[in-house]
């Protein structure tokens, strides 16, 4: 309810401030960012909900997925392949490497520490450090730019595509939405986020393993007592969460590039999304990610166009870093009003 209320207020203000087509494209940018945040925060939230582990290495796995996916996408042995197919496989490779690394991490390093909760956090933080150094050693400190595949990047005379249907025929890099061009790849990111969300909900609500996971979130010991091998479920969920993060890294790469700062940045936004939404709830993590994405998009637009408050003569213009910093304030506000987050259980 509260979330819907906030959302309605934000939207009203957005449409009052900008003309509709600008507002719509800000909204879409927000959804794009939200979809990427969702890929990070959903895993964080599930892992925390099930095994009470706050995974600080999530950002590094996000980054590792991006680097490995990029390496596959840009490297020689895949170059002869069609770029669309290469991109698809790169997403899978990123996801698989995230899942594999996460699974090994849980199995080998975190499992001995379930008796000492605080040390898991310390360990995952240390792994962040190690992971970043390893990536630095392999790929160096310079960032890379990842091109979008041909499906979203074809030049033709009738670009930008006037509508979604036309886009399917000419594959332009942007599509006109209410007469304003919007990158087609970003629409794909939104679609991908929605698909993953639907997939996760189906997995959690409709399958047997989903029932076990949800029961485990409620009380892992009880599930163990009922004869389920909870440890194996733990490893599986950990791998699932980090796999989503790795996939998210590849998906995000064409938008933000591949660099050493991305892990930390997205880990932090993932945390903020999870805190806003409430730990351990998939819906909460999703709502938090969306709110955060919208806030970032609106914030970026505001600092870009300058913030003019009624009593100011001149618009206050700031750098994008201020918009980045302001998301923390949103989190602080939510915490002050509802310490358990918007969808969290009160305890």
């Amino acid at each position: 309810m509260i979330t819907l209320g906030i959302l309605a207020l934000v939207l009203l203000d957005l449409f009052a401030r900008f003309e509709p087509r600008v507002a719509v494209s800000i909204l879409l940018s927000g959804l794009t960012l939200g979809a990427i945040y969702f890929l990070v925060s959903s895993g964080l939230s599930l892992i925390f909900g099930l095994m009470d582990v706050l995974n600080f290495a999530h950002g590094v796995l996000f980054m590792a997925g991006a680097y490995i996916g990029y390496a596959f996408y840009a490297s020689g042995f895949g170059q002869s392949m069609d770029s669309n197919l290469r991109f698809l496989i790169a997403i899978l490779v990123g996801g698989a490497s995230g899942a594999l690394l996460g699974g090994i991490m849980e199995f080998a390093l975190i499992r001995p520490l379930y008796q000492r909760p605080i040390y898991q956090v310390l360990l995952t933080l240390g792994l962040t450090f190690v992971g970043t150094e390893i990536i630095k050693a392999i790929w160096g400190t310079v960032g890379y730019f990842m091109e979008t595949p041909k499906f979203f990047n074809t030049n033709s005379p009738n670009c930008p595509s006037p509508s979604l249907l036309d886009f399917l025929a000419d594959n332009c890099s942007s599509i006109l939405i209410l007469g304003r061009p919007f990158p087609s790849y970003r629409l794909f990111v939104i679609l991908f986020g929605v698909l993953v969300f639907v997939g996760m909900i189906t997995l959690l609500q409709k399958t047997r393993i989903g029932i076990v996971i949800r029961a485990g979130v409620q009380d892992a010991e009880m599930v163990q007592a009922l004869g389920v091998n909870v440890r194996r479920v733990f490893t599986g969920v950990f791998a699932l969460g980090t796999g989503l993060a790795g996939m998210g890294g590849v998906i995000a790469a064409p938008i933000i590039g591949v660099n050493l700062a991305m892990g930390q940045e997205f880990l932090l936004q993932g945390f903020i999304a999870v805190v806003i939404g409430g730990m351990g709830s998939l819906v909460g993590a999703t709502a938090g990610a969306l709110l955060l994405g919208l806030a970032r998009a609106i914030g970026d637009q505001l600092v870009l166009s300058g913030l003019q408050l009624p009593w100011m003569e001149q618009a206050l213009s700031l750098s994008p870093s201020i918009a980045r910093a302001s998301t923390v304030l949103i989190m602080a506000l939510v915490l002050l009003v509802r310490p358990a987050g918007l969808f969290g259980k009160k305890d």
Partner: peptide, 22 residues
């Protein structure tokens, strides 16, 4: 862990501000 995350977020905010060109 909430406290851990919140303090990390505040610190990161200060870090971003220290780098801000404003």
């Amino acid at each position: 862990v909430y406290l851990t995350m919140v303090t990390l977020a505040f610190a990161q905010m200060m870090f971003v501000i220290s780098e801000a060109t404003d």
